[in-house]
């Protein structure tokens, strides 16, 4: 699920950037430091929409770095249990397949794949094929899955998905 949140961060700027382009450089640095990261509390920070410098820079005596307290708005993505997502299959193994929904990596085990789909080891591309052969899940296929559980670390979120429920599976 996506959120638009206001977050704060202490931004450390190298003294060499203390010139006429200080704030543009600081903004760029904020983008590079924050975007694409993941926090256990908020989830994935997708992009920054606006930046406010709410304090004057403070020079650290020891290193000479300037610290700015920055408030920014960002689009956040955090997966929840039970949420249905569209994901792209990245890897298929005999134990299940991996898929990615943006920055989120999801594993769908064979137990949560419909029982009529079996791993096809004979194929050149590893895939799961239904009994009648009409449905096939292989790499780069788009699947609709439901998140069954998440493991959230400080810097990483991993999810377990299922395509066993109704209206889930390959999106044709």
């Amino acid at each position: 699920m996506f959120f638009h949140l206001t977050l704060e961060k202490d931004l450390h700027i190298h003294p060499k950037h203390c010139g006429p382009n200080l704030f543009s450089i600081a903004t760029q640095q904020l983008h590079s430091e924050v975007e694409g990261t993941c926090s256990g509390r908020y989830g994935f920070i997708i992009t920054i929409t606006s930046v406010d410098f709410i304090s004057k820079g403070k020079v650290l005596e020891s290193s000479g770095f300037v610290v700015f307290q920055v408030r920014y708005n960002a689009i956040i993505f955090k997966p929840f249990r039970g949420e249905v997502l569209d994901a792209i299959v990245t890897k298929v193994t005999n134990l299940g397949f991996f898929a990615e929904a943006g920055p989120l990596s999801i594993f769908v085990s064979t137990q949560l794949i419909p029982s009529d789909m079996q791993f096809d080891a004979q194929s050149a591309n590893p895939c799961f094929v239904s009994e009648d052969g009409s449905t096939r899940i292989s790499k780069d296929d788009e699947v609709r899955l439901q998140i069954k559980g998440t493991r959230i670390d400080a810097t990483e979120i991993f999810a377990i998905g299922s395509i066993r429920e109704d209206y889930l599976g390959v999106i044709s």
């Binding site: 890897k91 193994t93 299940g96 991996f98 990596s105 594993f107 085990s109 559980g149 991993f158 377990i160």
Partner: peptide
């Protein structure tokens, strides 16, 4: 468990 899969892959 399945949550450990990324580490083991």
């Amino acid at each position: 468990t399945a949550y450990d899969i990324p580490k083991l892959l």
